[in-house]
Design a protein around this nucleic acid. Structure first.
Lengths: 217, 217
DNA sequence: CACATAAAATGACCGACAGTCAGTGTATTT
DNA sequence: AAATACACTGACTGTCGGTCATTTTATGTG
């Protein structure tokens, strides 16, 4: 009998519909200013129903973050299909990150905001559900980092990256750097433009050049 | 008569005492988990009294941020007394940032958290008091950035920095980078140590080397 | 000292919001 | 037709940031 399956499907659809509604609300109001009632209204469900599908407001937000990470993963995958030198691979990853930022700025913002939220998960007991999300997101981060380490190692072998660099440390540095760059680019947009008369694009473009200098042999 | 002056002094002292108490609470519980009642208890005042001295919970937090920025400013000043080449000055600024991070990690965390808070100040009307804080903090940021731009320009002139770099863009890049680095260092401390077996110190030390490579002529 | 006045401090109260739960409606099964 | 399982609801609760009428304390005056 397909009834159980149909129910399961419908449940998943409703869950996605709630996430759709939550995106609209969170993206327009931000995490703090959005209320669960707002989301419930937008989703055309009562608040109680939302709590049948998600454990908390934060978990709804996390579902959006996961969507963002999936989109980012797709971008990386598309760019890494080609066969490239180590340095070119690193550059593709950087450009991929930027592509994501320009294509999905709201997801990018949400992800950065989430990174900086006060999350105690690790310390708390019995947070099984959220831990799930936590491991998923850090897992994704590690996947990208591993690719980065591997690319730098490959670059050292094929001569496109300086032998003096330590692959692991350099990968962590690049990760931290680009996060910081995109943070500045997205949060201080108006300052950059008003005070320094440069656009986020220009800065990020310059950053890629700058990084190439540092990695080159 | 000195009574008015004494009152003024006492008022300032009480204000500082409240900030002291708030520091204890915020540093141990974080911004979200700390309640105004917690701070009032710690300060041994009633909640109402706190609101005679500060307009909001956020403003108390901002007072702490300002303390942090003052401490950071002192560190920079001490390091820039010496006469240095452009590149050396840039390195001193970087080391100063790191010194601050290791000396006052709680202030650093508070400042990073504040940067990422959803702040609407600019859009809101009649936020005179908070705007004050806002202009103070961005003012401090600009001061450091101006020193950075000037140092890079000097470095290009004295030959310690590559002529190919654009001073303004490079300064913004360095600012974004180091912010990102410290963020990774402070927030992913346990991950760095467990998964990659490197300390924050090692990463930051490597980062300085890496940056020197990129800036060198 | 007694009394008036101003300054400082209080805590009961309010509105907003995340999260809960007893109860209602609807589809499926027997 | 009755029983059961499932989906949904919205009034209610506890918490917390912020307010304000009232009380307490300090200063000034005759």
């Amino acid at each position: 009998m397909g009834i159980a399956e149909r129910r399961e499907r419908e449940k998943e659809q409703r869950k996605q519909a709630i996430i759709d509604a939550a995106e609209k609300v969170f993206f327009s109001k931000g995490f703090e200013n959005a209320t669960v009632d707002d989301i419930a209204n937008e989703a055309e469900f009562s608040k109680g129903t939302l709590y049948l599908y998600f454990k908390s407001k934060e978990e709804i937000y996390l579902a959006i973050i996961l969507r963002g990470m999936k989109l980012m993963g797709e971008i990386f995958e598309a760019r890494l299909k080609k066969s490239l030198t180590g340095l070119e691979t690193v550059r593709e990853l950087g450009r991929g990150y930027m592509e994501f930022y320009f294509k999905y700025p709201e997801y990018m913002n949400a992800m950065m905001y989430y990174e900086n939220m006060e999350i105690l998960l690790e310390n708390e007991k019995g947070y099984a559900d959220c831990d799930d999300f936590y491991t998923k997101t850090t897992g994704e981060t590690f996947k990208s980092l591993d690719i980065l380490v591997e690319s730098i190692e490959r670059g050292i072998k094929d001569g496109s990256v300086s032998k003096e660099l330590d692959p692991v440390k350099t990968a962590i540095i690049l990760w931290g750097e680009i996060t910081g760059m995109l943070m500045v680019a997205s949060m201080k947009k108006s300052i950059l433009e008003k005070k320094f008369n440069v656009t986020a694009e220009e800065i990020l473009e310059e950053y890629l050049k700058y990084t190439a200098r540092a990695l080159a042999p």
